[in-house]
Amino acid sequence: MQPILSVRDLIVEVDTGSAVHRVLDGVSLDLYPGKTLGVVGESGCGKSMTALATMGLLPDRFRIAGGSIRLGDEELTTVKPNRLRQLRGNTISMIFQEPMTSLNPLLTVERQIAEVVELHQGKSATEAREIALETLRAVQIPSPEERLAAYPHELSGGMRQRVMIAIALACRPKVIIADEPTTALDVTVQAQIFGLLRDLQCNTDTAIMLITHDLGAVADMADEVAVFYAGKSIETGPVADILDHPAHPYTRGLMSCTPRLRLGAAARLPEAGTLGEIPGMVPPLGRFPKACRFAPRCPLADTRCTTEAPLPVAVGPNQSALCWHAKEEVYV
């Protein structure tokens, strides 16, 4: 199957005025129609930056310095700004982390959904209203007719996130990037939102990139996983494989931090009753180690890890990891 979105060796740099730092350093991902890719990692590892780069929404001072982002057969890194605007919200759309602040407080729900449809599909206001209504129904908002006239402050957090999803969905995009869509919500609402995304995906064959720091969410939702660390995707593969036998020490550490994932490989870890933790912190930007970026925190690190940058190692049919020790089955 052809991937709908394919990111290859993406490099994003930030110019702080005195120095240029690499925020993303060779990130590669593939999204397939009807499938969900879970992107996991600690905050600051470049997950959101990958999403924003894909959308062409990088903040000031950030720029794409290398690699490619292909959407269908278009290259997004070199496409004209006008064409990118046509794609945004239409072929590829994004759901943001903060439903409380991501909706315009002064516009009605109808306006905020209908706007996208009018813009990309050239619909009239009446048609757009119909589509907005349909979309609200699709995201299972109770009494959608009334909600059309509501303002964001009249809605709960879960409702607002449904509206955000409706906006992202309104033009039937081929790709949806969901950046921590449930972090700000209650656990019960979180489950509903995930359920909703799954259902919608079944009906529409949309590819979803789910960005999260929650491995539980990945286990629930994703077909494929990409684990990020310090601006690199350090392990990729099918969700079942990675959860069953994570190859990168960081992935293993991450899993031992997640209580309900202490199954498979992690269950064999010592002190099964307590949560593990990864010693140290993600190094700040510009102070990344030259070779393996995880080496300072890695229990397996040796001299090679601090002198030579690791290359991707295939550890399964579709699974690969960026680690010199990936092949060694070490469960301390």
Binding site: T16, S18, H21, V23, G44, M281, P284, L285
Partner: peptide, 26 residues
Amino acid sequence: MEPDIAVTDPAQSPARQPRQPMPDKG
């Protein structure tokens, strides 16, 4: 917008020595 990666503003750090990637622990 400040992204979730911290960018230290050079104008605000009192010590203005050139910042180099440090090979040792972060």
